[in-house]
Design a protein around this nucleic acid. Sequence first.
RNA 1: GCGCCAGUAGCUCAGUGGAUUAGAGCACCAGACUUCGGAUCUGGGGGUCGGGGGUUCAAAUCCUCCCUGGCGCGCCA
Length: 557
Amino acid sequence: MPRELLIQALSDALSQAQSAGDLPESPSPEVDLQTPRDPRHGDFSTSLAMVVASETGRPPREVADTLVRHLDLPEGLAESVNIAGPGFINFVLSPTWLRRLVRRVLEEGEDYGRSDTGRGQRLLLEFVSANPTGPIAVVQGRAGALGDALARLFERTGWIVSREYCVNDALNSTRVQRFAETLEARYLQQLGRQAAVPEDGYQGDYVIDMAEQLVAAEGDKYLGMARDERLAALTEYSLQKIVADQQRDMADFGVTFDTWFMESTLYDDDEVSQAVETLNAAGHTYEADGALWLKATAFGDEQDHVLIRKDGRPTYLAGDIAYHKNKFDRGFDRLIDIWGPDHQGHVRRTRAGVQAIGYDPSRFEILIHQIVRLFRGSEMVRMSKRAGDIVPLSGLIEDVGADAARFFFLMQSMESHLDFDLELAKKRAADNPVYYVQYAHARICSILREAADRGVSLPNISDADLDRLGEPDELALMRKLADLPHEVSEAAQRYEPHRMTRYARELAATFHGFYTNCRVLSDDTELTAARLALVQAALTVLRIVLTIIGVSAPEKM
RNA sequence: GCGCCAGUAGCUCAGUGGAUUAGAGCACCAGACUUCGGAUCUGGGGGUCGGGGGUUCAAAUCCUCCCUGGCGCGCCA
């Protein structure tokens, strides 16, 4: 790939200039290669000379001149190298190299842009992991879109990725208990009994729906039970039902998991108490106020936290430490969790716990995505499940479709708040950028169909003389195709899947521009074959990107 | 009070040290096709990058103080 080749060549040029005595010795800076905003500044540009200049006290343009003199570029890579402005070195890729790239995309197909930076290491990506107390909400859809895209990005950069959803089904969980009590109240109400939803229960109407279904399926069979027995039965029923619904919600969104991890298994297998035992033995705990505490402050947290409550029940933190130990013990080289904004306060203590129990914190990353705020017109919709007005992901999918929802969730960086106007998204579905990208795909498919109808066959395309490609719009499209590998590795490395939606839009725009100015099917059979080859390459790359972001690639719209 | 995130064009957002004019989409205005899909393309207007100070050859980007908004701060999850 040109980027890597240029960085290598520049770095070599610097050391050669130094050993030849043309430049004073100085700490070698990392070569910063950027793609200039202004295309007149070339395809790639580096500020290396300015950095070296400031370290050595030489004039930047003179340093740039020296570097270029020592530069030994691979044959056919660059058309021109020049020094500009205060001391930038600009590179223009040669058309020859770009034509070779088209050939390469066609040869590699779906594998184009893969890299092996992960070297087959195993990554466990945990995301969504909603509490089993209601349907998947819109904000968790954002986590689903992010996690799925990130998983694909890591897969394309050489990692073996496992996707995991953790179900917090531990029976000592207050939330689970409160939910069972809520369902009990709704159930009794359905049967005409006096009952009230607990103060801190779940106000959402979906619990009423669940109670209705429960009555329809099981009648009044829970009525005669003792309260403890009834709550236990309802807990089991609601866990099973809600998890099944969550699985369906995620599947409808096109997000699938390798593992639905049941938190309760950590308790069944005694892993939580073993984890606490390990922490005790390592001296990272102490007793106070009748509870057992983790010395999180010894690992960079601002305060210590309780592991075992006064009444002997472990806290969520204890369970989470055991859970992450379990993940590492399954042999994963690296863990990434994607959490919602309401868990931001847990990042430090969880990292502290994982470190305390003996794992290298650099192998464990917690990514926090920000909230999704829903608007109906100008009115903001509250999303707390506990307040009752939960907006389920399934409703959003019905409104705008899974493709638009996924694209939208990935359009901005995860640390930005996302304002989603339901009315707007519904009313102007045709304006959604996802259609712009999908249209480019459908358009290419249409050209290829038309070509087939006219009897232009694909073997001709692979034999095409790509030297016929040289129009500005053709070169622009080739350059955009050349960007994919770098875009993918940047998006993965920086945990920024939103780069892919931007790239998708740019690629579509570049294609639409090409389409407008360069007629593909014409009487010139050689040119037709060459352009078909380019179009085929664009199709390949577009499909790769749409696959990564989890949006369908329709052949007709 | 403390912590995290955000504040960039009318709106939604990119851009985390680089190039006289800070980008994109939407919206608005003006244009483009007798041939491969007009869900397209071309051009235009529109911004004291929340504010002050600092570091640097170079700051939307780094440091610092302040302002505004969101989220979190439990022996809940």
